[in-house]
Amino acid sequence: MKVLVPVKRVIDYNVKVRVKADGTGVDLANVKMSMNPFDEIAVEEAIRLKEAGTATEVVAVSIGVKQSQETLRTALAMGADRAILIVAADDVHNDIEPLAVAKLLKAVIDEEQPGLVLAGKQAIDNDMNATGQMLSALLGWSQATFASEIKVEGDSAVVTREVDGGLQTIKVKMPAIVTVDLRLNEPRYASLPNIMKAKKKPLDEKTAADYDVDVTPRLAIVKTTEPATRKAGEMVGSVDELVSKLKEAGAV
């Protein structure tokens, strides 16, 4: 079984986000970019399936600017076998919407015919939480979102999902799309020899036009602003003072 893993190049999660003064977006010029953390978990799970003998090949796919090849090299260094880059934007500030990403991924999947797609549940830049579900809809496949455990059993997968109030287990027919949550696994660090080896692994480069997909956004960005800030209140010196303040405010 082939496993396909879409990965996105996003601002590194440790970098402080700055809104551009002209309100056109978030400043991404000269900031550290990394693989979306949820996608790292998806890559790790795919590699574990291969190590367990369940998967035969792991293919990483990225869609965005040309520099996304760095993200794909990271996936290859972790253990993916080959990579496909679809260049769909020439500026890092031009985010491709989940619907367009899903259409491009569908085109790749029609060619590659994987048995399972493992994707991060959301990207930490646009926080849409949509690509996996949209891809699943376009393919007419089953979906399991927010996975914290995945067991492949014959032609189906038993997936435990993080839902409101607890966990839900469902059984999905393969081929399926599974989106992964934080607690599924802890992604490995790529070793230096594997980083060197990754440079020689195959990385195909395509464009959105190769797949005849229109990536024009459906949501025009009117403006981007800083969130309203909350004023710091007062410091209290003791539990007694805290209790009396809360009683005064009618909070307890």
């Binding site: 601002i11 402080k16 986000v17 930490i124 830049d125 926080d127 939480n129 981007t224 969130p227």
Partner: peptide, 29 residues
């Protein structure tokens, strides 16, 4: 397209939503 986590309805086509873990608010049409 889906418009996720709407925090403000400006008009029938325009909505506000947080991005980057709430570090920015985007208005989309």
């Amino acid at each position: 397209m889906v418009i996720s986590e709407v925090i403000g309805v400006v008009d029938a086509d325009t909505f506000e939503r947080p991005i980057y873990a709430g570090n920015a608010i985007q208005t989309v049409k």
